[in-house]
Amino acid sequence: MTHQTSPKSTILERSRFSLNELPSAQRFEVWKDSINCIYSVDADRRTRREDFVADLDSWRHRDLMMVEARSCAQSFLRTSQMIASDGMDHYNVQLYTDGAVKSDAGLGGDVLKRGGLLLLDLAQRTEAQSSEQFNSVHLFLPRRLVEDHLTNPDDHNLRFLSERDPMVRMLFSQILSMHRHIHEFNDTQISVLQKTIVMMLSTCLNSAKGETNTTRALRQDIEKGVMIRRYFRENLLSQELTAETAADDLGLSRSSLYRLFKKHGGVNQYLRDMRLRHALKLLTDPTECRRSIYDIALECGYETDAGFIRAFRAKYDMTPGDVRAGHVPHARHRDDERIDKRYENWLHTLA
């Protein structure tokens, strides 16, 4: 009897970012420009000038994304301005197989050791530093997949989960194994693994000490912001969605709603950016390739494709047609075709 194996994933995407083909003097600036899609980075002069390396092995499967990173000592910063600009609302779970990361603002610790995990909330400010040389794996999960399972979903930014906890060690192994063997799984198996990881992560976080003096002081605005963003996600494509209807439905005053989204350029700007990110996701989705740009414009709240194209170009510095042709937004060094920067686009369209 012939043994039949299950079909592998039909929608898994993979990319490899590497600076190896560039002269040493150019590498750090190219890296800094690329990773600025999520973090602002800096390194000392010697690191920047002498054989700087940065390799990213990334894959994406629907709303799940992982990146294996290898690089040098540097600082990572995610500012309030970056949060307001890109609107990313993901959790980033990190593990290190070599080297370490530390943060003076860490919860439950300040240095990540092998076997432990670090959770970053990309809707909150983050600052950390990596060791001299490191290898790390980063799991990105949209907030909506995790927050309903958490007792305090907004209290875990820079949460260090100790390797002394057996559940944390099991989750560490699960994430690492999934990343290394992802090409062997079919789509159903990957979806099952994603749900398993979400539940294990939620268990680890719920058993951690959630509230601190800092998060307690910020809780009211954070919880309101999460509630509003969830409402916007669920009603994004409704033609009736406006700042006024949102305030009424959520039982908030309009002034309170406007204050919470002032850093995003206002409620209307935030909604426009969300709809354009949704459009970007549709334009890069192979299953949506037969849809016309006009049809996508209508779904995203634009009455004409001309108005949609103008707004899209203003945000991404390229047209919807450019994206359909394979160009990648956010990659400013477009003159160097040797570097695969698709991971940037994946981060911005993960939803």
Rank of each mutant, 00 (worst) to 15 (best):
E184M: 14
E184D: 15
F185M: 14
F185Y: 15
F185G: 07
N186A: 10
T188M: 11
Q189F: 09
Q189E: 15
S191Y: 03
V192Q: 14
Q194V: 08
K195D: 13
K195L: 10
K195P: 00
I197R: 02
I197A: 07
M199H: 11
M200D: 11
L201V: 03
S202G: 08
S202F: 03
T203H: 08
T203S: 13
T203C: 05
L205P: 02
L205H: 03
L205F: 04
N206I: 06
S207V: 08
S207Q: 14
S207A: 13
A208I: 06
K209H: 01
G210V: 01
T212I: 03
T212Y: 02
N213P: 12
N213Y: 06
T214W: 04
T214R: 11
R216T: 06
R216L: 09
R216Y: 03
R216K: 10
R216P: 00
A217N: 12
L218I: 08
R219P: 00
R219E: 09
R219V: 05
Q220A: 10
Q220F: 09
D221A: 14
I222G: 00
I222Q: 14
I222H: 12
G225F: 00
M227P: 00
M227A: 15
M227Y: 04
R229Y: 01
R230Y: 00
R230W: 00
F232D: 00
L236F: 01
L237E: 07
L237P: 00
S238E: 13
S238R: 11
S238G: 06
Q239K: 11
E240Q: 13
E240S: 14
L241C: 04
A243C: 10
E244C: 03
E244F: 06
A247E: 04
D248F: 11
